[in-house]
Amino acid sequence: MIVYHGTTRRAARQIARDGFQPRSPSRRVWFSRGKSYAKQRAHSKSRHTRDRPVVLAVDLDLKALRQRYGSRQVRESSGIISIRGDIPASSLRSHHGLGLPETAEEIARWVNAVLGVKAHKGVSARHEGVLRLTRWIDNRLATRPNARLGEKELLARAAQWIPDRFAGVEIDFEHLRVWPKVAREAEAQQAAFEIPAPVDRREEEAIDCLESDKPQRQVRGLQLLADLDDPDLFEWCVLLLGESQPQSAVGILKVMRHCEDVQPEVLVPYAESEHKAVRGAAIEVLVLRSGEEAPKWFWRGLTDPVPHVRLSAAKFLDRLDPRTHRDSFEAALYDPHPQVAQAARKLTQHMGFEPLAW
């Protein structure tokens, strides 16, 4: 079965080398059946890292993975697949946007990433060695378009043509990193005496809760992941939403308010739910986390026929500018529910909003 994984270019290169490896605190690798979802997750991650978005296509045999890791460690719901275990790089089938850096700016960023230095302290895109690397890559692609050009070869050329940046370091070509020669020896000596860092007990509790069949325990696990700033929190919420009943869906949606990036289209069915509590909880997530689409969801919530849903949107009205979104504030000001109207009045005093005269 072909599934997709949205990530960044830098992370994709590591995956191509080492495969997919679970990371703390939730210790899962994630895939989606839909390419569009993976593409949106890739763009979300790229915004935070200022890297290129990449979508990887992966061939998975879920039956074989369940036999290998256990049925509870391979889960699927709402088109989201969660696996607690390694997935080898050999599972990769195709990708979009993955490859070697080509422009001078990309090469400079790549070299600085290998060196572990920030851009303002690293090599410039105008460095003669970087420009030489750019010409070399262009020539290789033009004259031998089907030949394989690997990062190890690029790193060797970088060390040769940018010698001032690689002076005094030991190059690890296998893992594409460098080590100060003196620090390398000191680190080896220190490692022999290091005591492993203690595992946060909340991680273990979160995993136990998420693997439970009890909805309240699952919501507790999500709350712990939110406290731990787990970057996979949104995927966990989507996975569990697909398995949930209305009561537990409300709890999951409340935790989802802590997610930095959400895909609004995933939440649309819940924002249109017949259950007012589910609808209100979904509206709260969308007004908080849907970015440029938030005003649309404020209007949807404030004009809902059920007071509970209108209150869900009204309590976050301070995130809207009354001058820019006058229609939403007027809808709230004239709402028959006193708490909705009061929330709008506090934010529109002395702004020319007139009370409705009957």
Rank of each mutant, 00 (worst) to 15 (best):
M1C: 10
V3L: 03
H5L: 01
R9E: 02
A12G: 02
Q14A: 15
R17T: 04
G19K: 03
S24I: 01
P25L: 06
S26N: 12
R28T: 12
W30L: 10
S32P: 00
K35V: 06
Y37Q: 03
A38R: 00
K39T: 11
S46G: 06
R47D: 08
R50K: 09
L62K: 07
A64L: 11
Q67L: 07
Q67S: 12
Y69E: 00
G70M: 03
R72M: 13
S78A: 15
G79L: 00
I80D: 09
P88R: 04
S91C: 12
L92R: 10
R93I: 06
R93H: 01
S94W: 01
S94Y: 00
H95L: 01
L98H: 02
L100A: 09
A108T: 01
V111E: 02
A113G: 05
V114M: 02
K118W: 03
G122A: 06
A125T: 01
G129N: 01
V130P: 06
N139Y: 09
A147F: 07
L149H: 00
A156L: 05
R157D: 04
Q160K: 10
D164S: 15
F166Y: 07
I171Y: 06
F173A: 02
H175S: 00
V182C: 08
A183N: 08
Q189F: 13
E194R: 11
I195K: 02
D200M: 07
E204W: 14
A206R: 04
C209Y: 05
L210G: 09
K214M: 11
Q216P: 00
R217D: 13
V219S: 01
L222Y: 11
Q223H: 15
L225T: 08
P231D: 10
W236F: 15
W236S: 14
L241W: 02
Q245P: 09
Q247W: 13
Q247A: 15
S248W: 02
G251R: 12
R257A: 15
R257S: 15
R257E: 15
D261P: 06
V262K: 11
Q263A: 12
Q263W: 11
P264T: 11
L267D: 08
P269H: 07
S290T: 05
E293A: 12
P295D: 03
K296A: 13
W299G: 09
D304W: 10
V306C: 13
V309L: 08
R310N: 12
L311E: 11
K315P: 00
K315T: 13
L320I: 01
D321I: 12
D327R: 14
E330S: 14
A332C: 14
Y334A: 01
Y334Q: 04
P336N: 14
P336W: 13
A343L: 01
R345W: 09
K346T: 13
Q349E: 15
H350I: 08
E354S: 03
P355K: 14
L356I: 10
